[in-house]
Design a binder for these strands. Structure first.
Lengths: 205, 205
DNA sequence: TTTGAAAACTTAACACTGTTAATTAACTTT
DNA sequence: AAAGTTAATTAACAGTGTTAAGTTTTCAAA
């Protein structure tokens, strides 16, 4: 059945086209400016056609997240070389901050907006590449404790703490809340200092 | 000029009415469900009337934030009794987590949404009660260092780290991202453990 | 090659959203 | 009472996500 396979392929191509153009749109203009009609206009289709390929707008955003996570994981391939858990964790944090600050629209979608998560709930599926990053974090923390560089504690708890901190930094920065604490031009520098402080502090004496 | 004063008072009353009803609305139905028309319907005025009292919707939300901060500060009055900086900081963190989890709609507005901040930028004014809370945090951190309970570091940096962490915890929880790390029923407990871990970790040995 | 069903796509419409300009109603001052 | 000022409204614009109904295209069987 070569013909049904080809049709399936075409369908997937249009799906990809929709996702690509959606991503371009919110990288260019931010999350709030992405509308079904604007996406449709870019791919030269009627707005309602999108509903033949995706359940609703949230589902489109959900799949855009996936590609965001891939982007994020790519940034972490350099990590493979670092073996010291603390240093590795530190570099992971630095990458996280940089990703957030360089791709605020992606970050917004992946971690701040609720839309993609409500799509996730309305679907059976999980969050493949999203979970992957969290697993990596847990493994490093565990490794650090095994090598007695971190004081022993429940791994999930420490992982949650570390993730929350870097997420807190990025999300407050993106939403201009850190300007209240330090001058705007010092925000990025101070964010990195905060990360340094955390790692220095949690390191076993 | 008793008459002009009375008119001014009436104007302020309607302003308050708008704000009260707006707050009720998003406590009941969440931020995204608050629309100008819904507010107007509740106070039995035409939607456009709101624009005679506020520049736009963002400005309404901005003033709702103010009342959120007041609510938050109220929760902190019990803090006055605690003199030990670490314990005080800990209780402050606990209050913060509780406020976020108990008033997710308020928290959303105050720290996650960008709308109120863009209103702030379009106004000359500052963020009176918002800044106040941050000052309190800085003072405690400074106090902890003075009393040699915390290792010396740039105060803004440590304050930013602590705030980011609790904000990260709350905002990830509100957006259902922590379910990816621990089962939903353990989220709240683990959040508090993360906070405990931070304070235990940052305490000078 | 023509027919007919299935798939792909579009048009029209609904019920919303924030916001502005023009218009009417109400109250104050002369 | 007439004129002027303020307050509130109606009508409208341009946009949003989404659904139902109608149209066009595709493609296998007769």
């Amino acid at each position: 059945m070569g013909i049904v396979a080809r049709k399936e392929k075409q369908k997937q191509e249009i799906r990809s086209l929709i996702l690509e153009e959606s991503m371009k749109l919110f990288v260019e203009e931010g999350f709030s400016k992405v509308s079904v009609r604007k996406i449709a206009e870019r791919i030269q289709y009627s707005p309602t056609t999108l509903y033949l390929y995706f359940k609703d707008k949230n589902e489109i955003l959900f799949y855009c997240c996936e590609s965001g996570f891939k982007k994020m994981l790519e940034q972490n391939i350099t990590l493979g070389l670092i073996s010291d858990p603390i240093e590795r964790l530190h570099q992971m944090g630095v990458n996280y901050l940089n990703f957030g600050l360089e791709n605020p629209e992606y970050y917004d979608l992946m971690f701040i907006q609720e839309a993609p998560m409500s799509a996730l709930i309305n679907m059976g599926a999980g969050w493949s590449s999203g979970d992957q990053a969290l697993e990596a974090l847990k493994i490093i923390v565990q490794d650090g404790m095994d090598k007695e560089l971190l004081v022993p504690f429940k791994v999930e708890t420490v992982a949650m703490a570390v993730w929350s901190m870097v997420h807190g930094l990025v999300s407050l920065a993106i939403r201009q809340r850190l300007d209240k604490l330090v001058p705007a031009e010092d925000v990025e520098k101070t964010m990195h200092e905060s990360l340094d402080w955390l790692l220095k502090t949690m390191k076993k004496a």
